[in-house]
Every structure is written in structure tokens, then in C-alpha cells.
Design a protein around this nucleic acid. Sequence first.
DNA 1: GAGATATAATTGACGAGTCAATGATTGATT
DNA 2: AATCAATCATTGACTCGTCAATTATATCTC
Lengths: 144, 144
Amino acid sequence: MTKSFKEIKQTLLMLQSIDRRVAQNFEKRTGISFTRYEMLHTLFERAQLSQIELQQTLKIDQAAITRHLKILEEKNFVVRNRNKQNNREVIVEITDAGISTLENCDLDKNQFIDELFNGFTDQEIKQLQILVKKLIDNTEMLNS
Amino acid sequence: MTKSFKEIKQTLLMLQSIDRRVAQNFEKRTGISFTRYEMLHTLFERAQLSQIELQQTLKIDQAAITRHLKILEEKNFVVRNRNKQNNREVIVEITDAGISTLENCDLDKNQFIDELFNGFTDQEIKQLQILVKKLIDNTEMLNS
DNA sequence: GAGATATAATTGACGAGTCAATGATTGATT
DNA sequence: AATCAATCATTGACTCGTCAATTATATCTC
């Protein structure tokens, strides 16, 4: 039951293009990289996290996490400390400066999301979410 | 009418993760980069194209196009010649070697698509396509 | 026809994420 | 207790795509 590749190809191409544009445009508007914003936001929601936990949430490589955190630390948006209970782990926390940076982005971020999903009904957003979830579950099986 | 950012954030994160995994896994299976496969496939469908036309189809930067074509040319999968009617343009064509490379990938590619869209109904694939199209239309408005 | 403008391709420098190798710490086995 | 394996973080080398600057050609305008 092989699907029409031509259409699938186009959909995948569009998906990649969307991602790139989202990242580019988000940074242009808010002044902070989309990935680093997501990191900060995740840390804001969940207080203290190890880098592994961040990695699992953001689904990017550990090496990338380390490098982003280095940048966020230089700007004093996060602090990092070894976990005393397990010295292999680094515990990351957002700082007040980090939180206020998040807050400053809020308007631009909301505006951005509104434009990105302009014309979408709640139903469609939910539908997209479901389909994307299904896709990512499938990608998790790909390596076997 | 700001949407629930938490869910949207997650959807966008998943989208990016899907794209990366698709590219990684496709190359691992077929031995050719996903983007370069798409280039070859586009050239196969449409015979002769300028690099600008390729760029518009693949929606990646011109610079990236130039570099991918350099690689494809080194492998003799494509040939490039200046357009005699307009010497600014380079006309790209797929070679027989390029075509047979495409053919060799076919089985792996179909297998890959089947796994990626495993459990999707035709209806769902169509739905995804529509939503993605809507999204990309919105991203095109973002810069204004 | 000469000079300004536009278009196509190329190059270099950059940021992002991946993989593989390394280091440091912890846990398990004997 | 000593070795061996597993886990977490870091680093270097790499690919990919972007942007900005450059070159070459074509088109427009006076």
C-alpha cells in the first residue's frame, strides 16, 4: 500500500520549510532563538531539570543542549549546578533575568503564534496535533 | 484569541524532531541525503530546470542548491550547462547514472514512506497535507 | 550606446544539530 | 575492595541551511 510519493514528498518539503521559517521568524521578532526560548520556557514550567530531561523534552542532541545552555548561562538566564545526589548530572534552573526575558517576549510570541495559526479552527489545531503525534510515534520506530 | 501555547509549542517541537529524523533515517536507509534525493527526483520529473526553479521547488537557499549540485555533479548524477538563451542561468539535467540511482533507492524509499505513514488513512494523509499547506501559506505572510 | 538596475549563481562566514570519542561519576559483579 | 559496565556531560569534526557580499550577465532608461 505505497502512498503517492509525489504528494508525500511535497508535504515533507513543506514541513521542513515551515520549521525553518518558524525558527527564523521567531528569532527575528523576539530577539531570542526559538530553541533557546523553548529551553527557557521549559525550565520556567518545570523549575529544575537535568540536561537529559531537557534533551528528552526538546528532542535535540545532548551536545546541542550543552552549547545552548552555555550561551544562556553567559547571559545569566540560567544557572547550572552539579546534582549533589548524583554528580554526573547538571541541574539547570532559570534565573529571574531569564524569567523576565521570557515575559518580555510574550507579546511578540503570542502575536507570532496567532499569525502562524491564522485561520485555523481549534478543531484543526487539535487535528494537526494528533497527526503530528502519530507521525512522531512512527519516526520512533524507524530505526528498528 | 491566543491559542494554548503549551500545546502549540509541543507541536512545533515535534514537527522539528520529525523533520530531523526523516532526513537522518532516509539517508541511513537509502545511502543518499534526503534533500539530494528530492533534487534528483524533481529533476527526473521535470527534465530541465534552472537552479532558481529548483530553489523554488525545494524551498531552500540558493547557496545550498549550488552546493548540493556540486556534489551531485561530482558523482555524475547531474550535468549543468549555462542557458544559451540567458547566460546567467545554469540549466540542470539528471543523467542516466542519476536516474538509476533514483531507481535503486525506490524500494527503500517506499518502505520508508510506508513506515513513516504507518496507520494513516488516506483521509488523514490528505488532512495533513491540507493543514501543512495552510501553515506554509501563513509562514509566507510572516515577514510582512 | 552608456550607465543604472535587476537577476542568477557562487563564495565565505555563521549558527544549528548530529555523531563519535572522551571524561567523570555511579552502580553492579565477583 | 577492584574491576566492569552504565550514565551524564562535554568536545571536536562534520553536514546543512542562512545571510551578505561578489561576479557575471541581461534588461531598462536616458
